[in-house]
């Protein structure tokens, strides 16, 4: 199969993830959408690796997975502690990022 199709799929997944981040309010869903975007990137990396015939893309995909795992650990912890203090998992309820 033509590897370029994988790229289309990656773009599609990325778009779905980005839309999800922007329109969903539930933190968990937003979070999952971010994961989706990351995985879209991974797919693109692997496809490029295949396209160009070297292993760089695959190596970076591993990096991404490690970073994603670390992010999940920290992110989920924040979400849980926020939920505990506010009893809500809505992104818009936490607008305290400004001074």
């Amino acid at each position: 199969m033509n590897p370029v199709n994988y790229l289309y799929l990656a773009a599609l997944l990325f778009a779905i993830g980005a839309t999800g981040v922007l329109i969903r309010r539930n933190m968990i869903v937003v979070f999952m959408c971010i994961e989706l975007m990351l995985n879209a990137c991974n797919l693109a990396f692997v496809a490029f690796s295949r396209l160009h015939g070297n292993l760089d893309g695959q190596i970076i995909a591993f990096f991404t997975m490690v970073v994603a795992a670390a992010e999940v650990v920290v992110g989920l912890a924040i979400i849980v502690s926020l939920f505990r203090s506010r009893h809500s998992a809505s992104v818009d309820d936490a607008s305290l990022m400004k001074l």
């Binding site: 981040v21 992104v91 818009d92 936490a94 607008s95 305290l96 990022m97 400004k98």
Partner: peptide, 13 residues
């Protein structure tokens, strides 16, 4: 700088 994460995300995109 309104503090809403999603508006920041929009500006990033």
């Amino acid at each position: 700088q309104n503090g809403y994460a999603r508006s920041y995300a929009v500006s990033m995109f």
